[in-house]
Amino acid sequence: MSYNKEAEKFIDGKFKELIREKSTFRDELTYIVDKDSIIDILKFLYEDEQFEYNFLTDLTATDWPERDERHEVVYLLYSFKDNTRLRFKVRLKEGEKLQTATVIWDSANWLEREVYDLFGVYFEGHPDLTRILTPDDFEGHPLRRDYSLTYEIPQFSYNKDEPPEVI
């Protein structure tokens, strides 16, 4: 499952100024692009008829609290034409907002809500940006690396009289 070399050449040429980094690992092609231009790139690829990267497989995020731009929002595209994938990433600082992808795909609705719920990344223009998995009154964003797992010490016979300790 290698990536499409022609598509790589095409994107390298077309979006030269917008690409900040490019990497390949285990035959997977990843672009890191400017946060303001991501929707334009995705829209272009959606309408493009040469490579047809018009299927949003996944939209998720990763968190790197030690970095200045801590959030990475990941878009994974798929082309039915030649069965290859393409990954785009955007780096965001804490509190920075990103344009919503719901204008292109309907599936981005819930996926962005999930990223908002679990990472606290805001999407501008999203029709219904509310918590989806955690309870409505939940505080914090659990999938951030600095959010603790809240492990509770189980009670055995030797510590049965002590109240459970939450780490």
Binding site: T57, L76, R87
Partner: peptide, 20 residues
Amino acid sequence: EGETYVGIESPKGEIGFYIV
């Protein structure tokens, strides 16, 4: 160090694992 994504055809559809 790196990241991989593998999607397989589960009975419900494409289940994918993205590991960083």
